[in-house]
């Protein structure tokens, strides 16, 4: 059943939410394989079920149909080897940045002292050295999101799930973080599922872009992005990059989704 090299296998997945106004079909017939060390983006309009798919994959919601395998094991709860970054940074206001990053050592009963150097190194890598003892409310939005990325990376998970992590940031901070994430992927070769609304962001970061449509949430198209790596921001000026972006824009236009950016 499982394909070679496929780290995540999503098979015929459907998700129906019960709600007071009748059932909401958030996902239907989702089939997707994510290979080892692959960077895959989910791109789609608001409400097409991107977060739902991520939550099913993270074991936070149960799919109502089909199955999800991670390394051939069915997902029943949050897997061990996974880090998640959400749209909001959701740092704990009562802990300093270092303690926020070290949070999972407490959840998983790991030896904190072994992870402290790692946490500091991660914070350093994301430009947060010197802010270890600050509290989240003393940091800017971009710094907070960097800290929450460090938190997700602390135990060096093989699978990284990111749900619109840069959606709330301004364009400049967003460029910075895109670049840092591209470098991180280059260095660590993690398997990443990345959700975004931004077409250029998806093209810049991904090996493949999965386009979703709405009502119900389905996969419309999977686009392979063959831009050379490592990628720098200047790749966005290249004609190939422009071609991918305009292809995706047209696809959304055909789907009847006006997509501004």
């Amino acid at each position: 059943m499982s394909r070679e090299n496929s780290y995540v296998s999503i098979r015929d997945v459907g998700k129906v939410y019960p709600s007071p106004h009748g059932e909401v079909t958030a996902l239907e017939d989702i089939n997707l394989d994510i290979h080892n060390h692959e960077f895959v983006s989910l791109l789609g309009p608001s409400g097409c079920g991107k977060s739902t798919l991520l939550k099913c994959l993270a074991g936070l919601e149960k799919a109502t149909k089909g199955e999800i395998l991670i390394q051939d094991q069915p997902v029943v709860g949050p897997p061990d080897d996974m880090g998640v970054v959400f749209q909001r940074d959701i740092l704990l206001d009562w802990r300093n940045i270092l303690d926020n990053v070290l949070l999972i050592t407490e959840f998983r009963r790991l030896d904190r002292s072994k992870y402290e150097d790692k946490a500091r190194a991660l914070l350093g890598r994301f430009g947060l050295q010197g802010f270890e003892n600050r509290h989240p409310w003393e940091l800017s939005g971009g710094m907070r999101q960097r800290a929450s990325i460090c938190r997700a990376l602390l135990d060096d998970p093989e699978l990284l799930l990111m749900d619109e992590p840069f959606g709330a940031l301004d364009a400049m901070t967003r460029d910075d973080l895109n670049l840092e994430l591209a470098r991180l992927w280059q260095d660590t070769q993690k398997t990443v599922l990345f959700i975004t609304h931004s077409i250029p962001e998806a093209v810049f970061l991904s090996d493949r872009v999965v386009v979703m449509s709405r009502n119900p949430g389905r996969i419309d198209e999977v686009l392979q992005v063959d831009l050379p790596r490592p990628r720098h921001l200047s790749v966005r000026e290249s004609p190939e990059f422009g071609a991918y972006v305009s292809h995706l824009r047209q696809r959304f236009a055909q789907l009847g989704i006006v997509h501004g950016d």
Binding site: K55, G59, L60, G77, P78, F86, I90, L92, I104
Partner: peptide, 26 residues
């Protein structure tokens, strides 16, 4: 307690008791 925060903790494999003590209570 904010559901994103609970999800974050659950994704990090926190137990119910840990979520109560480290997230819900504060």
């Amino acid at each position: 307690a904010d559901s994103d925060m609970i999800n974050m903790a659950r994704a990090a494999r926190a137990s119910k008791l840990q979520i109560l003590m480290k997230i819900r209570f504060p």
